[in-house]
Design a protein around this nucleic acid. Sequence first.
DNA 1: AAGACGGGGCC
DNA 2: GGCCCAGTCTT
Length: 369
Amino acid sequence: MNDLEFFYAKKINIAEFQNDLISWFEREQRDLPWRKNKDPYRVWVSEIMLQQTRVDTVIPFYNRFMEWFPTLEEFADAEEERILKAWEGLGYYSRVRNLQTAAREVRAAYNGEVPDTPEEIAKLKGVGPYTAGAILSIAYGKPEPAVDGNVMRVLSRILLIKEDIAKPKTRKVFEAAVRELIDHDNPSFFNQALMELGALICKPSNPACLLCPVQQHCQAFEEGVQTELPIKIKVKKSRTIPLVSAIITNEKGEYLIHKRPSEGLLANLWEFPNFEIHTSLLPKREFFQAEFKALLGVIPVIQQHITKIDHVFSHLVWNVDTFAGMIDTEIDGRKLAENHYKWVNTVELEELAFPVSHQKMLKAYLEQR
DNA sequence: AAGACGGGGCC
DNA sequence: GGCCCAGTCTT
């Protein structure tokens, strides 16, 4: 049985389903800042921010982002430090760097107009199948599927689809379903309604089926198995990385900070000096001093232990011991620069983007001084 | 196909 | 403590 036959075996009244879903959305949709108009740039930014991130988290970031960068042009021209600061605390920081790369591409190749074809828009950095469909449908009214986690959950229940949604190829099954179901007169509301339903009614646990506008179309509800769907197999292991860190100041009250590499975890963000602990031969503060001396040529004075932080990422855990320290001798400026360290005052400190873990360390430090 | 890539809210 | 979130990129 191929996907299409699989789908038609579900016998659903498509016109009624569309009407029940969209009329519910028209009544109940939330008032969200990116729904003010259909400006493709605004829709695009919202979709990038919303990747793996809840609506309530995104709202304040989105509003500030639009104040800082009201147009694609202004965003394309912005300094990288500034766009990272706009994203500070949101996570998945490559999103905003890819977004700027893509915005510059739009300016160079498309005269500043976000393209409106699947082929062109999918080429943009950071725009995958979901985001392409979301922009095309919401900003341009094109009947393209926008399959995210919500849509897979909602449709797995309505159509009783039992494939593992953790598998990459499964998304295609749902895209085929959406292509059959989507309302060609209002693809924007259809796609948004599916996601809104997933967020407000058809939730991962305790779905509010009694309030559901498409309950009578839902095969999982009919069979009483809605809480067993979707099927998701994936297991993820996460490893723990022990780190030792110190917030180090000099006589001028400046802080020593380090810029992370341009690739990998927290790329291009700033942080306080820290080292991964790969030996238990030395106590942590002596280990820090040894690593610091090897890198920058001087030994910092370590004053006191500040805090121990467990910071959980999606794929690993940082276990960070943080000390307070100071430097009373000059560090070779060349060594600082080539290792991406620099001294900053408190004003500069606030203008640079730090991971939340390091914000927590600074907060604990300031509360103990 | 599987892993890297953040952070927070909810149960 | 685990799951999930308006996913994408790299390998």
